[in-house]
Design a protein around this nucleic acid. Sequence first.
DNA 1: CTAAGATAATTGGACATCCTACTATTTCGG
DNA 2: CCGAAATAGTAGGATGTCCAATTATCTTAG
Lengths: 171, 171
Amino acid sequence: MPDRMSFVTSPTDPIAEATRQWREHGWADAAAGMAAITSLMRAHQIALARVEAVLKPHGITFARYEVLMLLWFSSRGSLPMRVIGSRLQVHPTSVTNAVDRLESAGLVRREPHPSDRRTTLVEITDAGRDVAAVATKDLNDQVFTDPGLTPEDVAAVTSVLETYRRNAGDF
Amino acid sequence: MPDRMSFVTSPTDPIAEATRQWREHGWADAAAGMAAITSLMRAHQIALARVEAVLKPHGITFARYEVLMLLWFSSRGSLPMRVIGSRLQVHPTSVTNAVDRLESAGLVRREPHPSDRRTTLVEITDAGRDVAAVATKDLNDQVFTDPGLTPEDVAAVTSVLETYRRNAGDF
DNA sequence: CTAAGATAATTGGACATCCTACTATTTCGG
DNA sequence: CCGAAATAGTAGGATGTCCAATTATCTTAG
């Protein structure tokens, strides 16, 4: 009675299935790379959803959280837009977007740069520091402390992706 | 003259810097998980940009490419919208969006399901098969065959992310 | 010292993703 | 066998990301 029990059988991993297809079509040399990159896409989707779910009650997204933490950790509590974009490796327009929303929520404020009038400094507010602290506590407790892998696997994936990022010129 | 040579010094990895901050703030237990997940976000960004750059000349995005490949590999060349969403693990509205654009480009067509009128079948066209074939060749040549990591690292990251995905109920 | 080039930020447009309805079917329990 | 519940797909809205173009402001070469 295999059908009655089908709910306990593991469906095939779509990526394993794609790998099989790649080999069958004569693309064996590319199969492993395809699997790695596709895995990255899916894993990202899963991780992002988990993180966003924790942040949602605090009224921020991961993109805005990253901006907030960057400002929180900065010595003056403020950074130029440009620096934020370069640290987070996102397009200047994404920074504008994130800062717009953070500013509307009162978590940061824009200040003119004292010596370069092209530059806008983004400064974290007290409310921003509060949100950053509470959100970080929740993220640490609910996601980062147990991200869903063994500590060995966590270290392994971080290490390999560090190599990948360095090779890509990420830092 | 360290300043004159600064262009050859490696700037600090923002993730390594964040890890240091996490430990300093007493969140050592969460530091590794934070680093892993943040690495995943950055690596995803890099990989997606590379893939999209290759697909752009073919007039498709990675999201649409995945739909196209799923249909190409299917025995009948067609699948219900619902199945596409469940294989790719994306929201039904994302499938609607991708299929709308693929259909506008003539790469797929919507057909009524013969027995269930709620269901829409998406069928790949000849033009769709052509685009899938050429785009795959380019992706294999320009990205997947040499994704930017050693074969060992590629295997390692794929394996760990497979565990991650399985733990998350991805398959 | 001025004009050309570089840099900082923003605006507007294109896409992808999700969520919350909402409609149309199909399935199923009393 | 009929009405409630489940399922399939879509429309509208929010968010994030990128690109191209624009405005303002430095910087620098001649």
